[in-house]
Nucleic acid binder design. Structure first.
Lengths: 169, 169
DNA sequence: AGGGAAGTGTAATAGTATTACACCCTTGCG
DNA sequence: CGCAAGGGTGTAATACTATTACACTTCCCT
């Protein structure tokens, strides 16, 4: 457990999607701290990938990231994947398994906690919410099966508040 | 390359392991019933794909299934994907998002229930267990966010009981 | 018989991820 | 200083996962 920077989140509230994070800087800082703790360099490429994700409202695929970065200077997917690996280790980017895409997050994720990713099937946005109940449920299931849990993937497909309203209107 | 081992014991535990289902027949029956209910044919291809999965201890990718079926008669991946779509609708096959692979299951899944897939990172086997707590947790998170949940994906990466023991020995 | 929904077989392609390798650049240390 | 080692970069190639398109069949249905 390297010293994690305790930056607390603000993305709270109903229907508030994982919006274009205004505090890209804070996320960069988080990644930088992680790098420092491991004595690894926080390189240009890593910063660029994180910045693209942090500015985006919804998950992007590795190739979408590649395309955006390539506008300024030609980049290859493998470079993006490398940066994504790092950023995921740092905990500031998650992979959405159901969509094979990636998004930045500025929450602290504590070990033993379970975070639910709510993915809107209309607009594609992702909201995250920690859930103790889910954590307990996972823990219980694992215990009962003699299973040693490492990390959970909890994704909930559905329709976000905003899209529901829009349709109602 | 993936030279294969002979690692065929039952992954037993407290909790059901997704073991080599002896009752392939029961699963076929389940799929057949679904087909009948929808007045759709339960075809040869569908039966073959389900049989391959049902005999297997762990999830297979669509291309692995394709290869196995191709031993007897050349088959193309797209045909397998079509069968998988059907079998997933029928509820007797699930897709493991984190591994992009598929496995047969012989549990009933009731709507509103949440099922946890516990995936062993050592041996690759999957155990499923329903969890009310997880279901409630998801429901709660969704409600709080004004999110209308459709279906959940809950995968728990870790180490199964058998692999833990093996390592201890 | 004719029409239509559903499946099949085949080919081609799109989309996601990894491996391999040559090179660079910093750090540590003799 | 020299230089080796670990990590990152850039480039090319390839592997793996999934879908689209289309021509053809089959079964059902009045």
């Amino acid at each position: 457990m390297a010293g994690e920077k305790a930056h607390h989140e603000r993305c709270e509230g109903h229907g508030h999607a994982h919006s274009p994070h205004s505090d890209v800087a804070a996320m960069i800082e988080c990644a930088r701290a992680f790098a420092a703790a491991r004595k690894l360099p926080f390189t240009e490429m890593r910063a660029r990938v994180l910045t693209v994700l942090a500015r985006e409202e919804k998950p992007l695929t590795a190739y979408e990231i590649t395309d955006r970065l390539s506008v300024s200077k030609k980049v290859q997917a493998v470079q993006v994947y490398r940066a994504l690996d790092f950023l995921q280790e740092a905990g500031c980017v998650h992979r959405l398994a159901s969509k094979a895409s990636y998004f930045a997050c500025d929450h602290e994720h504590h070990p033993g906690e379970a975070v639910v990713f709510m993915v809107c099937s209309q607009c594609g946005t992702v909201q995250e919410a920690p859930s103790d109940l889910v954590a307990q449920g996972l823990q219980g299931a694992a215990e009962h099966a003699g299973f040693k849990p490492a990390y959970p993937i909890v994704e909930l497909e559905g329709e976000c508040a905003r899209c529901s309203e829009t349709k109602a209107a």
